[in-house]
Structure formats: C-alpha cells, structure tokens
Design a protein around this nucleic acid. Structure first.
Length: 280
DNA sequence: AGCTGTACCTGCAGGC
DNA sequence: TGCCTGCAGGTACAGC
C-alpha cells in the first residue's frame, strides 16, 4: 500500500496511541511475516515510532527494536484506550482480528496492535537497535524529501543517471519514500513526461520537479494518505488523498490543466499515468 | 552498473 | 452469470 505519506500517516497515529504501551504477548499466525525472537520484545515498552522512507521502526525500552515494512498491502492497526468514534474501513477485512490479520500484539490496558496483510509481502523484524542501520533496506536508502534531500543533492542524484525520470524517482536507493502514486503525481505537477531521460531535463525542470515532489508528498500527508487500494491509518480508517489524485488512476479522464486526456502506459513494469498534452 | 523478467501472494475489475 | 487474464501504494534476486 504505502508510500512515504501513507507510512507517515501510520507513524503519526502510532506515535500518538501506541507509545507508552507495554507489549504483553505476540501471537504469530504467519511465520514468514514475523522474523526474530518475540521473547526480545515481550515485557518491553514502546518508546518512539520512527520512519525511514517507507519503513517503520518501533523503538522499545530495551536493546531491541521492531522494523516493519508494509510492502503493498500491510496494515498496522491499533485498538484500545478511549479513541472515541473510529470508522473501521472495510479494507481491514472486517472486525479485528480479520482473515488478513497475521500478527497480534497484546498490549497492557486491554489494547491490541494488529498486523494485517492481504498479500503477505510485508515483514516485521525484531532486531537489535544497533543492527537497524545494517538492514539492507535501510542501509541503502537514499535521502528523503521532507528530510535531508536538498535541491543540490536532488539535482546531483538525477544528473547521475540516465534512465526515465519516473524510474529514478521510484528507486529507493537514490531517493527514499517515493512510490508509484506520488511519482506520477509529482511528474504531472511539474509537467514532465515520465519517460524523459534524466539527462534531457533542464535545470528549470529539475527545480520544478523538486518543488512538485515536496508538494504532492505534503498533500498526501495532509489528506491522511491514499486509500485507493488497501491503505488504512493506525486506527483502521481510510485516508482521503485518493479523492484528490491529479493524474493517478485517471486513465481516459480529462486533464485538469488542459484539454488533454490522461493516458496510461507501462514504464518499468508499473502503471504510469500522464497527460500527453501538458507533460512534454 | 543497469536493465529485464520473475517471484512473492490474494482479490477484484474488466473482457469475453 | 461465470471463467480467465491482468493488474494492484513494493522489493529482491537471477540472468543477461
């Protein structure tokens, strides 16, 4: 499901509700998802929730940590304390635990944390704090927009490659956090054809693109992520950005900038949406 | 180094 | 209605 704005939305929710809870038990229903020894987290307290690109890191009050990657359809849903009215999305598979719930954390104060994953691509790794930065996924992650990706770094990364720009934007080793939706959205906003080889981009276009990336990511966070397919926040609620897509999933519709019609092509094996009129 | 295709899984929309 | 194909917010790995 999730790209940077979706994972950040989950992080904000977990930071608010999960932090302070003690983990009393772990019930693993699908072994391949939960890696490491649950003994190392039982009895610990959650201290802080961090995000690295599309990855989540749950900091505990001992030497261990839980690294989580949701891949396409992972969900992390908190239930407990007094949350008021929560509108559980139908994307959770029904009441929790559902048929998609593969790991259940029992917390103190009668709370629970559910890991759901329709396609079971995601993972939770219990590892030593000191080993987190050695996980290949985190170790090789490039700088992140909204964090340490300055324009000069961005320009250097883009110029150091000569692949289609959309593929470079989605390469986590080059830039961390951008996935298919936001790559499409940013290129549309910057009026750049996704197929453009990076070497053919002008300084002006790079500038525009840099700003567009920041803008679409911020917008994604503002609307609580995109629930086009499977995403729900840390309380199991839908996000809203899918109602504000500029170009993603709008094949055949009219461009919001011009008289063009949105087209869909495959680029690097991924669905790519763009307006052939204004993205040139 | 950097491409391509394939694998991991399940559900669902669209075509016939 | 129902079957069949292809596609879905992602990464990892094998083989050119």
């Amino acid at each position: 499901m999730p790209e940077l704005p979706e994972v950040e939305t989950i992080r904000l929710g977990l930071q608010k509700y999960l932090v302070g809870h003690k983990i009393l038990g772990v019930d693993v229903k699908v072994d391949k998802i939960f890696q490491g020894d649950s003994k190392n987290i039982i009895g610990t307290k959650v201290v802080e929730i961090k995000r690295v690109g599309k990855g989540l890191i749950v900091e505990l009050d001992n030497d261990y940590t839980m690294a989580i990657h949701l891949k396409l359809t992972g969900q992390v849903i908190y239930s407990g304390r007094d949350l008021g009215k929560v509108l559980l999305s139908n994307k959770t598979g029904g009441n929790l635990p559902s048929k998609y719930t593969h790991v259940i954390f029992t917390l103190d104060e009668k709370a629970h944390l559910y890991y759901n994953d329709l396609r079971k691509f995601g993972w939770i790794k219990v590892i030593k704090k000191s080993d987190v930065q050695n996980l290949p996924f985190f170790k090789e992650m490039g700088p992140e927009p909204l964090k340490d990706l300055t324009f000069s770094k961005f320009a250097k990364i883009i110029k150091g490659s000569n692949s289609p720009i959309k593929i470079v934007l989605m390469d986590q080793k080059k830039i961390g956090g951008i996935g298919n939706i936001y790559a499409n959205e940013a290129l549309f906003l910057a009026k750049i054809d996704p197929k453009t080889k990076t070497g053919n981009l002008s300084e002006k276009q790079l500038n525009k693109l840099y700003g567009s990336i920041l803008e679409v990511l911020k917008r994604g966070i503002k609307y609580g992520g995109s629930s086009d397919i499977n995403f729900v926040n840390a309380l199991g609620e839908d996000g809203n950005y899918q109602n504000h897509f500029l170009v993603y999933a709008r094949k055949g519709e009219k461009c919001i900038n011009c008289t063009g019609k949105i087209e869909k092509i495959m680029l690097g094996g991924r669905g790519t949406y763009f307006c052939p009129e204004c993205q040139k």
